[in-house]
Design a protein around this nucleic acid. Structure first.
Lengths: 170, 170
DNA sequence: TTAATATGTCAACATGGCTGACATAAATTT
DNA sequence: AAATTTATGTCAGCCATGTTGACATATTAA
């Protein structure tokens, strides 16, 4: 349709596999903290706010909006939840008193660690299970980001889809 | 909170950086095809269906549900859209006539290619721009999955957050 | 014949995106 | 000092896409 160069047909299937691995890996990766969030009545939007505020205490609302790429309205809702439930608090900026600098409370920081822990474990496990380098390394790593109980299914899917691919190059 | 081993403090910050890189990279990666989808009145859910059906023509509805991990209801809506607009069609299973095997029409396959093209380009570019191996390779690759115009901001964020991190190990 | 399976459909609801308008206070510019 | 811009908050309302649970149909399997 557009002017894309499909000259390199050699890595075609591998690249498509990477697209799907990224989908699968991300799907599992973000699902890790869901159980914790659910008990608190929070969603993934809350998670992102807790994570980034904890990572950069004192950040402004504008900075957070820029990172998350969402609107004030969307942020406002989850931020209100987090403030009301005592995980985030705001501090008037010292040099600019219009700013409401964002910070985590002790409970907020604990929550952040709790949410981050399984993701850290997952990444460490993936890294430790991965050898090689370059392209194959990324593939390995992403594959290893998939939950062990899902790997068989993912592998079957990837292999199966490749077998049925039209122009099986490699 | 839970019994997580934070013994290995050496790779702590790097691992957190990987978490954020995965967030940023995925954010940009899935946003690639949005412009095309918007013109057709489709969303990302439609994209996923088109992609996976095109990758595995003749798959059953149950298989697709298992891959996407969504409910029948959620799938039904987007599937109906895609069928009504002529991008997907269903074929009665030959051995099992209860099945409605999923296929892309010609328009569907063209759409799939059109949606996949920028993601393939992005991955290829990232791979070609990446050297090294192992952990650093994944970091490089994910970093390079971020849009060039966003890399400065992402890098600043990662570096800035690391500088402000409590236990700056490495 | 009965039970299980594959699929479709309905109502109802929740989350978290979005727009656009508007308000306030503080900082900056004129 | 006055006017403008900036940082933030808030309101009403819309949309996409996820959820549950119930129920219907056709077909296959026991």
């Amino acid at each position: 349709m557009a002017d894309i160069n499909f000259d390199d047909t050699s890595g075609e299937n591998e690249t498509v596999a990477l697209i799907e691995l990224l989908f699968f890996a991300y799907r599992d990766f973000v699902s890790d903290p869901d159980a914790v969030l659910e008990q608190l009545g929070f969603g993934r939007a809350h998670h992102r706010v807790v994570h980034f505020v904890g990572r950069y205490p004192g950040m402004t609302v504008a900075q957070l909006l820029d990172i998350l790429r969402i609107t004030k309205q969307s942020l406002g809702r989850v931020l209100k939840d987090l403030i009301d439930k005592g995980y985030v608090f705001q501090k008037e900026g010292e040099t600019d008193r219009r700013q409401r600098l964002l910070h985590l409370t002790k409970a907020g920081e604990e929550l952040r660690q709790q949410l981050m822990a399984p993701q850290i474990s997952r990444i460490r496990r993936a890294v430790s299970e991965t050898a090689g380098n370059g392209k194959s390394s990324m593939r390995d790593i992403l594959y290893h980001l998939v939950s062990p109980e899902n790997r068989e299914g993912v592998k079957d899917w990837i292999d199966g889809a490749r077998k049925l691919g039209e122009k099986a190059g490699d």
